[in-house]
């Protein structure tokens, strides 16, 4: 045990005492949002028309934050691609995966696509949405690469999808700005709460989010996978 570990331990114990002292204050109701949450819960079904209120917070009340979040993800994925760089064309690939992963990749691919699309399109009705479904789509496109490492992902197509989805998100926001006076204001009325075609433009926004997250994560995983191992 050296000096660094001992000082780290002392620091952690002190911080722990401080945080546990905060526990007493934390048992006050509505500490963080101060009643905004209750207002949103009461008015969201009529104003926005989503059955899943988290979705209405994400895309309608705090839609600008989601745009910023997508920007952060885009920057992180781009920077990771930039740092990892292009692979040299004569670098050797990992060995092919065995029979089990090969067959499983073929069988799983359509089901994963279906599940991802379902979760994205029902994001305004049930738990789930663009982020979760996007991660599942990325997994669907990554498993075949894992099964046969020599067949690469087409980065051109994934970047095109990503750019298109991001532009669609901003375009829908701009339509809201010119039509209703607010950036990302929901369009097309609310519809009947609980139907698949309801909540105005929110399902379209979530579709854009899902495609963007899926393309970004798939591109990121493929970039990491394409970097040569030197063993």
């Amino acid at each position: 045990m050296n000096f660094r570990e001992i000082s780290g331990l002392i620091f952690i114990v002190g911080l722990g005492l401080l945080l546990f002292a905060l526990l007493k204050i934390l048992f006050v109701e509505q500490l963080v949002t101060g009643g905004i949450g209750a207002n949103i819960l009461a008015t969201a079904p009529e104003e926005v028309g989503t059955a899943n209120i988290v979705t209405s917070v994400l895309l309608a009340y705090r839609g600008l934050d989601t745009l910023g979040e997508l920007t952060i993800l885009f920057v992180a994925a781009t920077a990771a691609g930039l740092v990892l760089g292009q692979r040299s064309s004569d670098a050797k690939h990992d060995p092919d995966a065995g029979f089990i992963l090969h067959s499983a990749a073929d069988v799983l691919f359509p089901f994963l696509i279906l599940l991802g699309a379902y979760i994205i399109l029902h994001g305004h009705l049930t738990p789930g949405g663009g982020f979760q479904g996007g991660a599942i789509l990325a997994a669907a496109f990554f498993i075949p690469i894992l099964a046969s490492p020599a067949s690469p992902l087409n980065h051109r197509v994934s970047s095109a999808i990503e750019g298109f989805a991001g532009a669609a998100f901003i375009l829908i926001g701009l339509f809201g700005l010119f039509g209703k006076g607010d950036f990302l204001a929901p369009l097309f009325g609310t519809g009947e709460v609980g139907n698949l075609f309801s909540a105005g433009s929110l399902p379209l926004l979530y579709l854009a989010v899902g495609l963007k997250v899926g393309a970004e994560l798939a591109g990121l995983l493929a970039h990491l996978h394409e970097t040569e191992a030197n063993d």
């Binding site: 899943n52 988290v54 979705t55 979760i119 738990p127 789930g128 949405g129 982020f131 979760q132 991660a135 599942i136 990325a138 997994a139 990554f142 994560l217 990121l220 995983l221 990491l224």
Partner: peptide, 18 residues
Amino acid sequence: PDVALAEAAVGAGVSSVI
């Protein structure tokens, strides 16, 4: 449940693969 789905798909799936 929304957060649980995200954590299971992103935290346990994609993150471990990375």
